[in-house]
Every structure is written in C-alpha cells, then in structure tokens.
C-alpha cells in the first residue's frame, strides 16, 4: 500500500496515466493505430509523436529555462524566424540542405543569445526580455519572407519533417537525440546542480560560486537552438515557411508541457523526460480530438478540462483535500 502511494504521488504518474488513457481512447477511435508497412512505422500513434516533436523540442529547452526561474516566451516566434531563414536560403540562394539547416539553427542560437544576454547580463525580467522577441520575431520572419509564404521543393531538407531513418520518422530521432545530448550534459557535469540552485536561490548560488550569468546565458541559447530546430521541422513538414502561423502560440503549449511534466514555474527541480511526457499529453489530446467527432467549438474546452484535471491531480494541496474527503466517508 505504501509503495502504491509512492507511485501515485510520483511526479510522472498522473501525466503518464492520462497519456496512456488518451492513447487507449485513440486506439479505439482510429482505424490505423499502429502498423509497420514497407519497413516504416505508420498510424495514429506515430502521428502523436511526429506532430508532438515540435512542442517536445520546445519543452526540452523551456524546462531548463524555467528551472532557472526564467521563462522563454519567444520560442514560437523563433521557430518562424528559423523556418523563414532556411526557406530563404533554399530558394533565394539555392543553398544545400546542410547550409539551410545550419542557417536556421544558427539564427535560433543567436535569438537565444539575445534573450540570454538581456536576462543574464542586463538583468531584465525574463518575461519582459523574451516578450520583445516574441512580438518582434514574427516581424523579422516576415522581413525575411517578404510577407509571403515561401514554398520550396527540396527533398533532403523536407526529410527533416517527413523523412524516415531506420523506419522511424526523423523528427522523432531529433527529439531523442536532443534529449540524450541535453541529458548527458546536465547529468555528467554539475550543470543540473547549478541550474536547480539558481532556480531555488540565485543570490545564494552566486555567493556559493555558481557562475549564474553564464548558466543563464547557456539555457536561453539551448532554448533558442531547440526552437530553431523545431522551426526547421515545421517548415520541412509543409515544405513552406509560413511566417504568420509557424509556431503560433506554441510557447504556451511548451510552458504547459513543462508544467504538466511536474516542474514548478518558480524554478528549481526539473525533469527532461517529464517535459516530454507533458508535450505528449498535449499532442495526444489534440490528435484524439481530431480523430473523434468532437465539434469544432468544443475542442478547446475539452483540452482545457483535461489539462486542468492533470494539473489539479499533481497539486499536493488538491490531493490532500481529496484524501480527506475520501477518508471522511464512513
């Protein structure tokens, strides 16, 4: 009984449970839930991971930023910029896929550096610092695309969003790769400790000798890079850079994913896998709703209700109250 209690109160339990339940429902609704044809995986389950890859990438970067007590509102706009940059390189300069990818990632990293500099060096509030790029970023992307949707045809680049390697979509490999790289760096160095201590108490960390500014700068750059990669996948997926709509409001989904994953917005402890589970909960709901017959006007409400439920179940205060109610029953 005690061990069951420990499982139930684990940070990942409720989001994982909701995700599994969602998948069961999706399996019931879908005619192609999972299959392997021509050596490739196919089906609704695959769609959840492929469509969720963008928010998963954003959530990886976002969880580091949030763990330092910051927030990055600009990731959606950065996606638009990186997609626009790579599409512009592909069309206006007939660049190779490698150059386009480097360009997109580079511009994402520069955006992250800008955010990081404002926060770490000039002491701006993270919400304000990243709000600047959130509003201006889409304008920058439109300057690059000249206000139009740039359509391109480039098989190698489009593989980022549509291609497969070893039968698994490349976008899923990219998420896995990013998870392993970030996970390895934070756990094999003392970076996790530094990030969590900054999020808990920045002043004490500085006094204790943690390079606060450098770590902060780093997490925003990583977030920018993740957003850049998500932007490339977004553009590759539709073979076009849509500066108006690419990544629109995805910063909110990413923050939601991190919170569902069990992190506190005030900073401190973080879990990379938790953030990924959070992103999958959000995408699993979306795909299930699209597969079901929920009416257009009800879809947002359905999503909101489930999200509120997950967040409540994770709240110790809510759980304590629930337990008291159950115990009181004769």
């Amino acid at each position: 009984m005690a061990s069951l209690g420990r499982i139930v109160s684990s940070r990942h339990f409720w989001p994982l449970l909701v995700f599994v339940l969602t998948l069961l429902l999706l399996r019931h609704l879908s005619t192609d839930f999972f299959s392997i044809s021509d050596g490739r995986v196919y089906g609704s389950l695959v769609d959840v991971f492929v469509r969720g890859s963008q928010v998963m990438l954003l959530a990886l970067g976002m969880t580091l930023v949030i763990a330092t007590g910051g927030i990055d509102l600009s990731v959606g706009a950065v996606m638009a910029i990186s997609g626009a940059m790579s599409a512009w390189l592909l069309t206006a300069h007939e660049a190779s896929a490698g150059v386009a990818i480097a360009g997109g990632l580079g511009v994402g990293a520069v955006c992250g550096l800008w955010n990081g500099a404002l926060v770490a060096w000039f002491g701006l509030q993270p919400i304000i610092a990243t709000l600047i790029l959130m509003t201006a970023g889409r304008g920058i992307a439109q300057l690059i695309t000249d206000g139009t949707i740039i359509t391109f045809h480039h098989a190698a680049f489009e593989a980022l969003g549509k291609g497969y390697a070893l039968g698994v979509p490349i976008s899923v490999w990219l998420v896995l790769g990013m998870l392993l790289v970030i996970g390895a760096v934070v756990d094999w160095t003392n970076l996790r400790l530094s990030i969590e201590s900054i999020g808990s108490n920045a002043t004490a960390s500085r006094v204790a000798g943690v390079p606060v500014a450098r770590v902060r700068l780093l997490v925003y750059v990583v977030s920018g890079l993740c957003a850049g990669l998500a932007g490339l996948i977004n553009a590759a997926n539709i073979a076009a850079a849509d500066a108006n709509n690419a990544g629109l409001y995805l910063e909110l989904d990413a923050i939601l994913a991190v919170v569902i994953g069990g992190a506190a917005l005030s900073g401190g402890r973080f879990s990379l896998t938790g953030a990924l589970v959070g992103a999958l909960v959000v995408q699993g709901l979306t795909t299930t709703i699209l597969t079901s017959d929920v009416s257009v006007h009800a879809t947002r409400v359905v999503k909101a209700v489930v999200v509120v439920l997950v967040c409540l179940l994770q709240s110790p205060a809510f759980r304590a109250r629930l337990q008291r109610m159950i115990r009181r029953r004769p």
């Binding site: 409001y249 995805l250 909110l252 699209l290 947002r300 999200v307």
Partner: peptide, 9 residues
C-alpha cells in the same frame, strides 16, 4: 488546435 486556453480570447 495547438492553440490552447488563452487563444480563445
């Protein structure tokens, strides 16, 4: 559909 919560506004 990705747009959540706040976007209704």
């Amino acid at each position: 559909m990705r747009k959540m919560l706040l976007t209704t506004m």
